[in-house]
Design a protein around this nucleic acid. Structure first.
Length: 204
DNA sequence: CACTAGATTTTCT
DNA sequence: GAAAATCTAGTGG
C-alpha cells in the first residue's frame, strides 16, 4: 500500500480537509516504531484571503512551507506548549493548509499512553496539541514530504465511505470566524469538541 | 456539564 | 510587547 499521492493534496484546502476524514495517519518514530490512527477532525486554512490563517500577512520564516508544494507537513509551535500538525494544500506559491485536529488512535496505543499518561483513550489524541504529543511530532518534522513512503509522517487510504462528514465553524480563532471550514466525523467520540447544534451519541 | 483563568515561549509588529 | 489554529485544572450550577 502506498501513501496518498500529491494530486490528493493539490486542491482547495476545504476539499482536502473534507477528504482527509477517515484516512489513516501513520507516524514512524526514529526507532522504527509505528504509531497511527484515523483522522476524525480537520480544519482548512487559506492564505491572504483568510484572516485566521498564519499566511494572512504574507510569507514569514515560520509559515513559508504553506506557500510551497502541496503534500508537505507544516508543523508549528504555539501557546508556549503545543505543536500543531498541518498538511500543505493547493497550488505552489499560494498559501493554504489543513490542520489535523483529532485522530482515533489505532496503532501503538501503549506508546501513546506512556508519553501522555495512562488515561481514557479518548483523551489521548482528541485535540491538535494532544495528538502531536502522542505521536511525538515537533518542529523538526516541518516540511516533510507526506507522499514519500520514507517520510516519518504519511497518510493512507481508509474506509472514508463509512463516515458521515459534518462541517462547522473553526475552533480557537478570533478572526475569520464565520467560515464553516471545520470538518469532523459524525458521532465519533474522538472528535475534540462538538459544536452547538450537533450531538454526540453515547456520551455519559 | 459550562465557563474561566493561568501556564509559557515563539513569532511577528 | 502583544497575541497566539491549546490544554488543564478549578469553580460553580
Amino acid at each position: 500500500m502506498k501513501p496518498l499521492n500529491r494530486s490528493f493534496y493539490a486542491k482547495k484546502p476545504t476539499e482536502v480537509a473534507r477528504n482527509l476524514i477517515g484516512k489513516h495517519l501513520i507516524r514512524q518514530l526514529p526507532s522504527g516504531r509505528i504509531l497511527g490512527g484515523i483522522i476524525v477532525e480537520t480544519e482548512a486554512y487559506g492564505g491572504r484571503r483568510d484572516p485566521a490563517s498564519h499566511a494572512f500577512r504574507g510569507m514569514t520564516p515560520r509559515n513559508h512551507v504553506m506557500f510551497g508544494e502541496a503534500g508537505h507537513t507544516y508543523v508549528y509551535f504555539t501557546y508556549g506548549f503545543h505543536h500543531c500538525l498541518n498538511f500543505v494544500t493547493g497550488k505552489k506559491g499560494i498559501a493554504s493548509a489543513v490542520l489535523i485536529r483529532a485522530i482515533e488512535p489505532t496503532i501503538g496505543l501503549e506508546y501513546m499512553e506512556e508519553i501522555r499518561g495512562n488515561m481514557n483513550h479518548r483523551e489521548l489524541t482528541n485535540g491538535p496539541g494532544k495528538l502531536c504529543q502522542a505521536l511525538s511530532i515537533d518542529r523538526t518534522l516541518n516540511g516533510c514530504d507526506v507522499t514519500d513512503s520514507k517520510s516519518p509522517v504519511k497518510v493512507y487510504e481508509g474506509d472514508s465511505s463509512l463516515v458521515t462528514v459534518n462541517a462547522s465553524f473553526r475552533v480557537g480563532i478570533t478572526k475569520g470566524v464565520t467560515r464553516k471550514w471545520r470538518f469532523f466525523a459524525e458521532s465519533n467520540e474522538f472528535v475534540s469538541k462538538i459544536p452547538r447544534g450537533f450531538s454526540r451519541e453515547r456520551e455519559s
